[in-house]
Amino acid sequence: MKIKAIIVDDESGGRRLLKKLCNRYLSDKIEIVDECNSVASALISIKEKNPHLVFLDIQMPDENGFELLSQFENIPFEIIFTTAHKEFAIEAIRKSALDYLLKPINFQDLKTAINRLESVLEKKLNTNRYQLLAENLSQPTSGKQRIAFPNKTGFEIIHINQIIFCKSDGSYTFIQTTEQQHYTSKSFKEVGELLESEINFLKVHRSYLINTEYVKNFKSDVYVLEMTSGDEIPVSDKSFNKKELIDAITK
């Protein structure tokens, strides 16, 4: 089954390039069934065409791509956002396990996004990631934000402020929260990028990222942090001297 897709972008050049990439390189996987230059025209097209996927431009003159989502109580299609700017919204999109493409769009990024989309459609994942996106957009700097972490069966939604520490585990990442343990297929580097903007998170070792709110004790003789969970986290003495570490975990 081919993925039926609609492109929503006010710039004709952007629509033309994306359609050209899909037709030239991904014609066996995706069919562009319509192009729209506004939210209003996209609403009409979506009702008529019933697409599996919408490529949605974030910033359009006098309107925002997110306004399209607010028109649906339950969003019946997948979305890949497109944008020319790395703005705050990108963080909310990533934390909701949704895809985006930076303009000018290149084939490799597009191919990767479509491959991920196929996996989502095959598993018929029902996690409401669009509701999660709306929540994270409304509170971009709040510890109340949640992240959708992919795992073997779909996604787990985790509150950022409940994460005690993250540990690299090969191609996976172990996450200890105040409630339970989790494994995600996101790499330690990817998890770090999602959490690096949060003020309480600190990378203390090449394999460990901690939430400083849950530090119980610093054993300075062995350079180990004891967390409220009882776990002991090694600290790289090459990254911090004692004063720098104490300042970082008590700020």
Rank of each mutant, 00 (worst) to 15 (best):
K2V: 01
I3H: 09
I3T: 14
A5M: 06
I6M: 06
D9F: 05
D10R: 08
S12K: 15
S12Q: 14
G14Y: 02
K19N: 12
K20M: 12
C22V: 09
R24Q: 04
S27P: 02
S27T: 11
D28V: 02
I30A: 01
E31I: 11
V33N: 03
N37H: 08
A40T: 15
I44D: 13
S45G: 01
S45E: 01
K47C: 00
N50K: 15
H52M: 12
V54I: 15
F55R: 03
F55P: 04
L56M: 09
D57T: 04
Q59E: 13
M60C: 10
P61N: 05
D62N: 14
N64K: 12
G65V: 11
F66N: 12
E67Y: 07
E67A: 08
L69D: 03
Q71W: 07
Q71V: 09
F72P: 12
E73D: 14
N74I: 11
I79A: 06
I79Y: 04
T83H: 11
T83M: 06
E87F: 05
E87G: 14
A89M: 05
E91H: 14
E91S: 13
A92Q: 11
R94C: 10
K95R: 15
L98Q: 03
L101P: 03
L102C: 00
L102N: 08
P104V: 00
F107H: 06
L110V: 02
A113E: 10
I114D: 11
E122H: 01
E122G: 03
K123V: 03
N126C: 06
T127D: 10
N128P: 01
Y130K: 08
Y130D: 02
N136G: 07
N136Q: 05
L137G: 04
T141F: 13
R146F: 05
I147F: 04
I147M: 06
F149Q: 05
P150Q: 05
T153E: 15
I158D: 10
I164F: 05
F165T: 08
F165M: 04
C166R: 07
K167G: 00
K167W: 07
D169P: 08
D169R: 11
T173R: 02
I175D: 05
I175Y: 04
Q176V: 04
Q176L: 14
T178H: 07
S185N: 14
S185I: 15
S185G: 01
K186N: 13
S187K: 02
E190V: 02
G192S: 12
G192N: 13
E193M: 04
E193Q: 10
L194Q: 00
E196Y: 00
S197M: 08
E198N: 07
I199S: 13
N200M: 05
F201P: 07
L202Y: 10
L202C: 10
Y214R: 01
Y214H: 01
N217H: 09
S220A: 13
V222D: 13
E226T: 12
E226M: 09
T228L: 07
D231S: 12
E232K: 15
I233F: 08
P234S: 00
S236P: 02
K238Q: 14
K243I: 13
K243Y: 08
E244V: 02
I246R: 14
D247W: 08
I249T: 07
I249V: 15
T250D: 03
T250K: 02
